[in-house]
Every structure is written in C-alpha cells, then in structure tokens.
Design a protein around this nucleic acid. Structure first.
Lengths: 400, 400
DNA sequence: AAAGTAAAGTTAAATTCCTTTACTAATGAC
DNA sequence: GTCATTAGTAAAGGAATTTAACTTTACTTT
C-alpha cells in the first residue's frame, strides 16, 4: 500500500502504465483483449491507449482476425521510445551495448581493456559507448539511462568505488561524472553497479535465473563475488556490499590458512583464479600456468591439474554451502572465468553440498557467459529507463 | 507500480488507508493537519475520515487549540477495531499475549512447556491462548489474526514444520489447524513462523532494531538461528529457510571438527548452549553445568569458564562474520539464552570481527530478551491484521 | 444472397470521487 | 468589538471511470 495521495490524474497515469506493462508481457494485443485481462472497461482502454500512442509509447502492430467478428487492431509498446546503454568495465575487457526499450541489443562492442590509469580507462569506456551509439544510429539525447558495471562497491553518496582491489586508482571521485559528460546528455542518467550484481540481474532477466524466487549468481574469476536477486529485486544489503563473500572467514580446512587464523579476504585468495594457479604450482605443475590451462589439463587427466581442480571445487562448495545456509536460494548459478568450467566444477560442488546441508539449491552453469555483466547492465538500465520514459513530461517524439 | 486496475472505489479506499497509516504514525491529528501532510484536500479528508469513523476504524480523540484560530477536532485510529494474538512455542516455555490494533499488549501469560507429545503441546498452546483472551476480555471473534512462533521452518503447503530437531513429533501435519479450531473463530487467520524470524521482527518493531536498513538477529540458545529483516520486511529465502545458519559449514578452526570434515549442523553443535557446557567440561569444570552457570563463573574469573566463554565468542564471531559477508547488515543483535550474556560476548565478537572483515555492522544486545519472539509474533499478527480489518466488508461494529 | 451472430470498437449518459473556491465557525490578539 | 488566523463545510466544477446501447465488420447459416 502506498504513501502518496491518489488523485484522478495519478489514477489515469497508473492505468496507462498498467496497460503498457501488459503489452510488454503479451504484445501485440487488441483493445478488447486488454480490457478483458486488465479488468478495465473498453472505453477506458481505448482512451488510455490513444494517449499512450500520442506520447509515442505505444504503436499499432497490424491487425488480427478473431474466430468470428470484426478485425481487431493490435498494439505493442513502441521500442523506439527510448534507448539504453550498458557498459561493462572488466579487469581484462571493456564492453558496451545499446538496446531499445524492448531489450533488443542493437549494437555491441568488446575491446581489450588497455587503460593504464583510471582516467584513461574512463575515457576508453566513454569512447566505446560513443562507438556503439554511432553504429546503432542512436543519438545521445535519445539514450534515457546508462548502467555501468564495475568491480567493487559504488557509493552514490560520494561517487566513489570501494573495494575495487584489482583496478588501480579506480576509487577516485568524479570518474563517472566525467564519463557521463563525455557521453553528452545532461539529461542522461548514469548509474554504477557492482559487476557481480549486474551479472546476477542479467542472468535473472535473460539467462539461467529466469523465474527463480531467490537467485544467487557466483562470479568466480580474477576475484570472487556473488549477486543476489530476491523476487526479481537485487539484494544489496545496508551499504551495497552484500555478496562480498571474498570476506567470508572460512577456515576452509586448509592447515596453511588456519595457521594464520582468519583474516581479510582469505576466501577470495583461496577461490579466485590465482588460487587455482597457485595450488597447481604447489602440486608440481610448471610453465606458464593460467586457470584456463589448468582446467584443460584436468580434462585431459593430468594428475596435478585434477587435484588442483578438486581442491578448487571443494572450496567453492564451502562458499555455496555458506551462502545457502544464510540465504536459502532455490538456484545457484556459477559464472565468470572459472565458473565457465562448470563441466568440472558442478558435480563435485553438488556432492559436497549434499554432505554439508539439507538446503540444496539447484546448481546450474551460466547461460550468458561473458555477456552476463553487459546484459545485466542493459536489464538494469531498462528498469530505470522504462518508468522514466513513461514519466517524461511531453515526449518530444520525432515525426512518425 | 501495481498490477491491478484503478477504479474510483479503489482510489477512495486507498486514500482512506493512507489517512489511517498517517494517523498510526502521528496520532492524534486534526483534519487540517492530515490534509496538509497527505496532500489531499480538506473536504476529501473530512469525508474519508467520516467513512473511517463509521466503520469503526478511527475515533475522535479530544480537541486541540492551535496557536491562533478555531479549536481542532483530533482523530486517532481506534485500537479496539480488532485484536491480535501472539503465541511463542518455545522449547522450555510457552507464552501467549493479546494486543489491540495499536500494538498495546492487554494481557500475557508465560508457563513452562510441559507438553510431552506434540498433541499435548498444541493443546497447551491453545489453552494458554484462551486464557489470555479471557483475561483481556476479548472474545475469539474479535481476534483478527494469530501468529505462532516455533523452532523450525513451517511449510504452508502441507502445514508441517521442518527442521524442528528439539521438539519431538512437532513435524506432524494438522497440528496448527487443531490449534486454530480450538481457538474458535473459523474467521481467525493463523500463521506460523520461525522463532528466530519472529524475534528479529519483534526486535525490529519494538526493540534494538528500530530503523535499521538491514537487520540481523542472532538467536543463540538451545539452538542457533538468525532472522533477517531487510527494509522492514522479513527475508525468508526461497523456501523459508533463510537464516538456518546451523547448517553453516564453518570448519571453525577446531582440529576436532576439522578431522571429521564439514558435516550437517556442525555449527549449531559448536555454538549452541550445549556446546558451551561441553567445552567447559572438557576444560575441567565439573558438577551440574548449565550455560548460565558457566557465564556466571566466567564473570567471577574461574579460568575454565573464562576459556569456554572465549571459545564460544570466537565461534560466534565467525558466524557473525560469515553472515555479514553475505548480507552486509548495518546492525547485528545478539539474543536468546546465551545471547543474553552480552556483557561477556559483545567485546570479543567485535574484536574478532575487526580482524576478519572490513564490513563491520554495529553490534548490540537484545532489548527485548525473552519477550522477543512473543512481541515479534504480535508485530507479525498486526501486519496481517491491519489490512485485513481495513478490508473487512462491513465492520460489524459493536455499539460505541 | 440475405439474414443471423459474434466480436471489436465507439458514443453518450451516469456515476463517483476529487479539487477549487467560497463560505461559516471559533478563537486569541489588539 | 474588530481583525487575523485557523478549522471545517458547502457548493460547484472537473476528471476519469463504468454501464449500456450502438455501429462496424466479418464469418456462418439458411
């Protein structure tokens, strides 16, 4: 129940929003269908739809012949009513994409992250965004919202990123203001989010997490983080740091870790990609080791690699078990660089989980892979953009 | 934004609800005040208030003289519009209370839990509830909602309680239906909740958790559980088992626990009241040991007791650290039998937390103590009852 | 081919609830 | 007693909804 007074204008606006949402779920639809399904009367639907069409939020989408009777005029949301921008600032790569309001990606770009300084990185991100907007032929003033994904926790109070240990200088203030200015529109809203959170939302909106009640996405790569989506909403905690499981104080059964006692970021060090490499080296593997190579060798049966992977999966299982005990998710998705090797990880994690706790969420591999963060940024931008476009005073619609 | 059509009746009803909520926060208030603060016009407030008064939801509450001008008639919610029942089925004691819609407890009872069987226990609970209703002079048909707290996880699908390891036979189906029948009203709604969750809500509504954005209540006693309140709403997970941290797979640095590897309920065994007793015994204490006695001896300086308490607090710190890393709460409250000894636990837990993680929630002792679950049940029942009373077709009001 | 039927959509009237404006009522200050 | 100020009411007007009747269109039946 609401905290604002309901006058008639708000009532009208609400019913228009209701119709728009219905159309998003079941487009195209005729006025009569909408009246039946929303419970509104036919005249109300007609006039609301006319208003929506005038504002450029809805458009005709052909006709349909019912079994008997007059042909119906169909309507759908107009995806060109606005556009959104998603930017994924990863430690290794930089990605950006433009999508219309229906969520369709019109253009995307994926370049190596060569930024040596934070300022150069911000600049490169803005340029990449400019490029996708160009190639999608979308001008800056038509972009309603841009969502940026980055490691660490963004504090909207002072505009800084905290806990971004792998990006030097990335904690400086004002970086994102500069990106916004460079993108052009002062009308442009720009929001910054944790990458694991965005990946979770992406996987929830477009991937393996669809329909889950409480969905946990585990991002294992250079770092370790989880994103939590509860009933479709991101769960961020009191300061936006929920899911920073790198700080879990698990002793993890390793005598070496135990000797030093619990300390900061212990788990992150134990589960991230570097940890796999370190373990493999300790077990006797040599040469230029990467997590990817170790997983490949494990598939081929190299004993040291197999052992390293087993240790990794055991530790991962502890993370999943700990998160499950606290949150009780119905689905846990593994993603990120290491998470991609789910063929090797899923079964042992599942087995370990069965030994530890009766709370057994379904385990699944990521469906979106490397695109999770980017698509999550798009999904997040859409969430902000759709109400914003709807509430825009007089949609300065282009001629149609 | 909503999923239902907004006709005029719903608009009216919404504005009435809005006024009622405002009155609950700032009663008593005059019509003019309400108009100013809600943004509704004075005539609307007048007519809505008249309707509310006619339905028995609101009543006059004297008059007030403004600095200048005519005397104002004040209104307040009528607390006698309905009553709620809270029942706390604890492992050791049985508690029940009746409150009016304002949340004021009119009568309460607290008896030892002597039930040998689940059926006898259910019967005793119903009888205790009957007694408080009698002594508060509230008939069963005026009770709108009853909330029951119990260990374990209640599954509303089949009406059973799971994971209630300390109450024999408590997993049987139909137990709560019988309680409801015994209480009388078929109109009576009865809901069943986990005790840690209720304690959390109680502490959030009436105690130390007020105003917290993300609040965690740790219930340490015969068992171990946490309740999570996120932005005023209980966080229950996908199957209602969120916060069952007894299943946390922490190895806890104890070689003994490590030898067996992680297993089910390991943490619960390590942190509950029994664990303190066990540790103290291993450390050489003898005689009839209870957790309470050990804490008392620790205060007196008995070395073995001091050591046992230190170990307990270290383990507890790991739980709090793990929960903090996953959830990022701004406040953690310790409650329950062992949690009551916060003078001994709080400082070491805080110190250990500082070593483990930069995410440092405020730590505080319970304010409600043994009443947390019962008051949480009242708070929960009120949440259900208030909208229900509001939506009751024609409040069959008693003569006033 | 004409008549019937059913569905889509429109029109017009009635209804409801809100706001605005203008008013009355009551009280302290002067 | 008058003025200023605040509380509350009454009447008028307006916005958005619903109901019910109507028109339009296309297929089906005879």
């Amino acid at each position: 129940m609401d905290e604002q007074p309901w006058n008639r204008q708000r009532l009208r606006s609400n019913n228009e929003w209701l119709l728009l949402e219905h159309l998003r779920n079941a487009a195209p639809a005729s006025r009569a269908q909408l009246a039946r399904v929303t419970g509104l009367s036919k005249p109300t639907v007609s006039s609301a739809l006319a208003a929506l069409e005038q504002r450029g939020l809805v458009r005709e989408a052909g006709t349909a012949l019912p079994e008997r009777g007059r042909t119906a005029v169909l309507y759908e949301p107009d995806p060109t009513a606005g556009y959104v921008l998603g930017i994924d600032i990863g430690r290794a790569r930089l990605r950006a994409a433009v999508a219309d309001l229906s969520g369709e990606v019109l253009s995307r770009i994926d370049v190596p992250n060569t930024g040596r300084t934070a300022a150069a990185l911000a600049d490169a991100a803005a340029r990449a965004a400019g490029k996708v907007m160009d190639s999608a032929d979308v001008s800056a003033d038509r972009v309603v919202h841009a969502a940026v994904g980055t490691p660490g926790v963004f504090d909207p109070e002072d505009g800084r990123v905290r806990y971004a240990v792998n990006l030097p200088g990335w904690g400086r203030a004002g970086l994102f203001d500069k990106v916004r200015e460079q993108l052009g529109g002062s009308a442009l809203e720009l929001s910054v989010h944790n990458d694991a959170n965005l990946a979770a939302l992406g996987e929830y909106a477009f991937g393996a997490g669809r329909g889950s009640k409480l969905f946990v996405y585990v991002l294992i790569g250079t770092g370790l983080g989880i994103g939590i989506v509860s009933h479709g909403e991101l769960f961020t905690g009191a300061h936006g740091a929920a899911g920073e499981v790198g700080f879990l104080p698990l002793s993890l059964g390793s005598p070496e870790l135990l000797r030093h006692g619990p300390r900061r970021g212990a788990l992150e060090e134990a589960v991230s990609a570097d940890a796999v490499v370190r373990t493999a080296r300790e077990l006797g593997m040599t040469g230029r080791l990467t997590a990817k190579r170790i997983f490949d060798e494990a598939r081929a049966g190299t004993p040291a690699a197999v052992a390293a992977v087993r240790q990794e999966s055991e530790r991962l299982a502890l993370v999943v078990a700990a998160v499950s005990a606290v949150l009780d998710p119905d689905l846990v998705v593994l993603g990120g660089g290491v998470g991609r090797s789910t063929d090797l990880l899923l079964a042992p994690v599942r087995a370990a989980l069965h030994q530890t706790t009766p709370l057994r969420p379904a385990l699944a591999p990521s469906e979106l892979g490397d695109n999770a963060v980017l698509l999550g940024a798009i999904a997040t931008a859409l969430r902000s953009a759709r109400p914003r476009v709807f509430n825009l005073p007089t949609n300065q619609t282009h001629a149609s």
